[in-house]
Design a binder for these strands. Structure first.
Lengths: 103, 103
DNA sequence: AACACATATGAACTAAAATTCATATGAAAT
DNA sequence: ATTTCATATGAATTTTAGTTCATATGTGTT
C-alpha cells in the first residue's frame, strides 16, 4: 500500500518542513545569492545555511553554480513558486489567511 | 524578514512531512472513510490514525462529518491533489522519477 | 607553496515531532 | 442507565530532524 511515490512525497515535504529553508527559498525568489550573502541577510550562521542548502539542492529545489570562490545558489522556480501559491490560496480559502500550528 | 506567511508555509509542510499522513491522504483520494476503515486498510493502530487525522484536519487538509457513531473523513482535494501533481512532475523532471532521502 | 576567503562536512548535542498505551468521551442500542 | 462500538486525547517515551562547532576542502591570490 505504501507506494514508491508516497515516499517521494514524504521526502519532498520533509525537506521543506523547516523554517530556515523556507526563509532561504523566499529570499532566493528575488535574486540568486551565495552562501555568505544568505548568511548575512538572514542573520544565520554559515554552516546552518550550508546544511540547509545542501538538502534543498539534493531534491533540486535549489541549484548552484560556481563563480570564483563563491557558490551561487538559485531557486528552481518551476515547482516551488506554484506550490507556495497553492498554499497561499489554501490559507485564504480554508484557514482565514494563515495556517496555525496544530498543538 | 521571517514573515507571517513563511510561518504558514512551515506549518503546512510540517503537517505533511509524515509518511502515515501521506498514506492516509492517498487512501482518501479514492473514497471517504472512517477511522476504523483507515486503521484496517493501512494496518495502523487506531490512535495513530486519530492523531494523524487530527492535525490534518486542523489545517483543513481533511475534513470530517459524523455518521452515527462513526466519523467519516474526506480529503479537501482543492489543494492537495494539485500539490501532489506538482511533486510528481518535479520528481520526473528533476529527480529521475523519485526524490531520494538526502542523508 | 603559503595564505586568505568561501563553503562544506561530520559528529556530538539539542530540539521537535511521532509513537505508544492507557483512558476518556461520544453516540447509539438494549 | 448500562453496555458496546467508535473515536479522541494526554503524557511519557522513542524516533527523527536540526544545531553547533571544530575542521576539512576548494578556489583564487601573492
Amino acid at each position: 500500500m505504501k507506494s514508491n511515490s508516497n515516499n517521494t512525497y514524504h521526502v519532498f515535504f520533509t525537506n521543506l518542513a523547516n523554517p530556515l529553508k523556507i526563509n532561504i527559498i523566499i529570499n532566493l525568489k528575488e535574486k540568486e545569492k551565495n552562501v555568505t550573502e544568505l548568511s548575512k541577510e538572514l542573520n544565520v550562521e554559515q554552516s546552518k545555511i550550508s546544511h540547509a542548502l545542501s538538502s534543498l539542492k539534493c531534491c533540486n529545489i535549489v541549484q548552484a553554480k560556481q563563480k570564483g570562490k563563491q557558490r551561487i545558489y538559485f531557486l528552481n522556480k518551476k515547482t516551488i513558486i506554484p506550490m507556495l501559491k497553492l498554499i497561499d490560496k489554501h490559507a485564504q480559502n480554508f484557514c482565514r489567511g494563515k495556517c496555525l500550528e496544530c498543538k
